[in-house]
Design a protein around this nucleic acid. Structure first.
Lengths: 193, 193
DNA sequence: GTCTATACCTCGATAGAC
DNA sequence: GTCTATCGAGGTATAGAC
């Protein structure tokens, strides 16, 4: 009869998934606790039996969104998958406009910057995982060079998607993504000097 | 005796400067109309004689912040200034942590994405100005290549600063900026193929 | 653990005196 | 045009019944 404990974990997980989905799309302040709970099929009253505060939920939701993201799915789908394909999938207009599980690094960058350390710490860990993955795919290079390249590519991916999302002109958004795909690809693929 | 009209314009400008400063640092939702008016030496009551709504103010504030930014000052300081210096000044930790007039493109990217068209239109115009400037400095290249490079460098700059600001680890933030400086410099400087 | 109800607060926007 | 005062909406967080 350890069932109740398991039940609670499941509920908590549903809340987290609802939060990850809503926060990623709309940001912290445009989503209320009621919205999150409704998305999990509950009412707002029982929220505080699962989380200390809205910010605490946000911190965990960032990590959850990262695990649920299309990028994360691509990563586990096959380590062998080459980085160029990953880049192209990330820097795609469907990720910017329709993706139900977007990357929180790109969708929440400036939103996270104004929160407290708990949230920024979660964001930082997700960022480091992305950099580590990219670096791993560049292991034919000297370690320092691979790390630097991985960071620049990460910034290009995140910046490309974040800015593209803010633009109100579809043609410019597409052109921006294409430019990031091209030069991101060069950074990943150019021969060592 | 056209003075009253001029007075009103001055007041309006002070409100805009206060808004640009506060919104850039804290985002749209974390700044109230009262905060903005206080920053301009007024009370909240007279706000609506100058602006239609908070969102309308935000749209104009994005443009104002862009004009006041350190980047804009560098631009007019001398068109001759080379792009490498501009890149280094932008991708600097002081821009991320202390700059009183930060670039709204980097500080508000995901914040703008969730607003309506009026705001995103203002953001888009600022972005296009940055791209145009970078492209101009790459005019020795074929036009299409220059535009693509300019867009990628812009995404790298904005992404580098935006992400760096969200990180809670100073060493990683510095490493990220350094990586963006290096490869942004390569994108600007590498010889045409 | 989840529900309804509510305390308490902040904010955007408006009204009306000066 | 600017001020003080206020309306009304919506939010976080808590209380208490079930």
């Amino acid at each position: 009869m350890g069932w109740p404990r398991q039940q609670k974990r499941n509920t908590r997980q549903r809340i987290l998934e609802s939060a990850a989905r809503l926060f990623s799309r709309h940001g912290f302040d445009n989503v209320s606790i009621g919205d999150v709970m409704r998305g999990a099929g509950l009412t707002h009253g029982s929220f505080y039996t699962h989380f200390r505060s809205k910010q605490a939920l946000y911190a965990e939701a960032v990590a959850t969104a990262a695990r649920a993201s299309a990028l994360a799915r691509l990563l586990e789908e096959g380590k062998q998958r080459d980085l160029q394909q990953l880049l192209a999938g990330y820097l795609d207009i469907s990720h910017v406009r329709q993706e139900p599980s977007p990357c929180p690094l790109a969708f929440l960058a400036t939103d996270v910057a104004t929160r407290e350390q708990e949230v920024r710490g979660a964001y930082t860990r997700v960022f480091r995982r992305l950099v580590a993955f990219l670096r791993h795919g560049l292991s034919s290079r000297p370690a320092a060079d691979a790390r630097e390249r991985a960071m620049a590519v990460a910034a290009l991916m995140i910046g490309g998607v974040a800015v593209s999302r803010a633009l109100d002109d579809e043609a410019t958004a597409e052109a921006l993504l294409a430019a990031c795909r091209r030069f991101g690809g060069e950074l990943l693929g150019a021969a060592p000097e």
